[in-house]
């Protein structure tokens, strides 16, 4: 695949699309995953606007080092929390809406993605949002596809907010243990959670109340995200999947 148009045409003609980001344990790896490495690469940094427009098949590593040259970074702080190898594609991070431990300071993907280009199951290529940091025009497909495990469409390009390098927080990328979960704990329970988890607490962001741990999740979480877990099966998720991918071809 040498162009987005070619990718789109292949999606249109096929009845099975596998787009797992390489190396990810969060989405069960698949040897049949499509290879996007020959797609043309877009990486335009707008440091004066603190925005970057970038192809999602690039790895977060590559994107960060290019951005660093313009004095910018994406404030995704690696840690035990990530679990995705740094050389995984940006799309892997977006498809999982992967949490990170500096969310309380910088926000996360839903705050950073300003717009997206998406290849739909029909083979159509659509855009949502724009490159400005604020817009309320239309319904936000670029929010809906985040965390959708690639099941609503293939995100090929995004406009992302960036931050000045001066704000960079160093994180240490560690291999995540199996059975890793991330959970949102209401502030009032943080102490109880700390106690209950002991050294099963691998990471904790005091500003947001998010915890990374293994084993049993203490009671009272707002939400829990387990490694490798499929999308929830509520009524709205089912409807979204039916509408966007009626034949179930995506992932």
């Amino acid at each position: 695949m040498k162009s987005i148009a070619e990718l789109a045409e292949r999606v249109r003609l096929t009845d099975r699309v596998q787009t797992h980001p390489m190396g990810s344990r969060f989405l069960e790896g698949s040897p049949e995953a499509w290879d996007f490495s020959a797609l043309p690469t877009v990486l335009i940094a707008y440091p004066a606007d603190q925005v970057v427009t970038v192809s999602t098949h690039l790895s977060l590593d590559e994107i960060q080092s290019e951005l660093n040259r313009t004095g910018q970074w994406i404030p995704f702080v690696p840690g035990v929390a990530t679990g995705l190898p740094d050389h995984a594609s940006l799309r892997g991070f977006l498809d999982t809406r992967l949490p990170h431990p500096a969310v309380g300071t910088f926000g996360s993907w839903r705050d950073w993605v300003l717009g997206a280009t998406v290849v739909l199951a029909s083979g159509e290529v659509v855009k949502s949002g724009c490159r400005a940091v604020k817009s309320v025009a239309g319904f936000d497909l670029h929010k809906l596809v985040l965390g959708a495990r690639g099941k609503l469409g293939i995100i090929t390009e995004v406009h992302l907010r960036t931050w000045p390098l001066a704000s960079r927080v160093e994180g240490e990328s560690r291999t995540a243990p199996h059975g890793l979960w991330v959970a949102q704990c209401p502030f009032s329970r943080v102490d109880a959670w700390r106690e209950a988890l002991g050294d099963r607490c691998l990471e904790h962001d005091a500003l947001s109340g998010q915890f990374w741990g293994t084993g049993e999740v203490p009671a009272g979480a707002d939400w829990v995200w387990h490694e490798g877990q499929p999308l929830p099966e509520d009524r709205w998720t089912r409807r979204a999947l039916e509408l966007f991918d009626p034949t179930g071809k995506l992932n």
Binding site: L144, L146, G147, W225, W236
Partner: peptide, 17 residues
């Protein structure tokens, strides 16, 4: 609909609709 890290961001779509 609540903010969640494990599923689709319906909240993000409803806000602004």
């Amino acid at each position: 609909f609540a903010l969640r890290g494990d599923g689709l961001d319906f909240l993000g779509v409803i806000v602004g609709s």
